[in-house]
Design a binder for these strands. Structure first.
Lengths: 190, 190
DNA sequence: CGAGTTATATAAATCGTTTATATAACTTGA
DNA sequence: TCAAGTTATATAAACGATTTATATAACTCG
């Protein structure tokens, strides 16, 4: 056989790069083959079809987002720094962000499932200590912030010419303060 | 000429129906032609190309969402009923909802632009009166609720097998209460 | 070193989009 | 009324992307 030049990683890497720079629409067999300087055959030997490959790009995107956010976590304030990381991601990687927020989430039948699937486990402990709330309240607070951040990120990622990141940050910061206050004072909630 | 059987409305209507039942991926010339029982030619005579047609479907979706939400507005509580309408929409029309939230929004350079583009003008007056807040605070409150609702709707629309609508409603209701409380008590915000 | 295997290329088949040409039915003006 | 022009549609061909079939080249193992 000819020397192996392609691997599953090479192929998915090229597909991911295309999605990153131009969205999932740019992920085509031909574009990948061109980028790799090969025929379409290696692509099909590492994935069943384009749908499978796009699914792999989604998985890669999830990993990317996770790593991107993790790298920006400030141990001193993981709660705020994580929220801000999502907003930065929206600005720096709008295509990946859109892929991320609208990817199919399997096995989610409750907000609790969603929380377990999406949230970083370190946050509730931090919040519980920092804001003097119960573990359950910290989870609730964290979930509210995730929802708000996804909402603002979704809007941000499709708005042109674009809202200044600073304006988004301050809106987010306002919401955080309100959520924190709401949680600590609201005896009826959760 | 043969009798005119197709119109721009017929074509876009068929495209919209396909998007509604299966998402934008289902909107293809062939599928539209098949659904209308005609060749592809009429489709191209009423739209320049598929991108234009898909854009028309997006516009139709925006109108649909607007009408859907408007029809469910309860004059007694427009704020909550609108929020709930979006959640119901997410559940009943997940494909349309996804098209709606990720459609390109042109000419948005601030949250204020966004607010003007998306929000129903009647809400702030209702909120200002009902909750005893200034017009600016009512706007802020409404914007927060829009963001939160888009966030929760985005998640809801891609989760399988799905989160019970009741759980989403109560989460939304909690957030509303917190936002209302936050706005009325927070002298520093806005 | 030859048989079998496998990574890749070439090319053909299929499907979606788009354009070109043909046909059918209407309008208009002589 | 009928020929010319126009237009709504159909047929079909061209193009591009996906997928499958076949061919070739280089490796492993006996």
């Amino acid at each position: 056989m000819p020397k192996q030049r392609m691997t599953r990683e090479t192929v998915i890497g090229a597909a991911f790069a295309l999605a990153r720079s131009g969205g999932m629409e740019q992920v085509t067999v031909k574009a990948i083959a061109q980028r790799l300087g090969c025929s379409v055959q290696p692509i099909y030997s590492y994935c069943k079809n384009m749908e499978g490959l796009r699914q792999a790009v989604v998985e890669e995107t999830k990993r990317f987002v996770k790593a991107y956010v993790a790298a920006q976590i400030d141990a001193g304030d993981p709660f705020r720094s994580m929220g801000r990381a999502y907003i930065r991601l929206t600005q720096e990687e709008p295509h990946l962000f859109r892929i991320f927020i609208l990817h199919k989430r399997e096995g989610i039948s409750s907000l609790d499932d969603l929380y377990r699937a999406e949230a970083d486990g370190r946050i509730p402990a931090y919040l519980a200590e920092k804001c003097n709330v119960s573990a359950a309240q910290a989870r609730q607070l964290h979930l509210d912030m995730l929802i708000y951040t996804i909402g603002i990120g979704a809007i941000f990622s499709v708005s042109t010419p674009g809202i200044p990141a600073e304006e988004i940050f301050s809106q987010q910061e306002r919401a955080y303060r309100i959520f924190i206050k709401g949680i600590t004072e609201d005896e009826h909630g959760q």
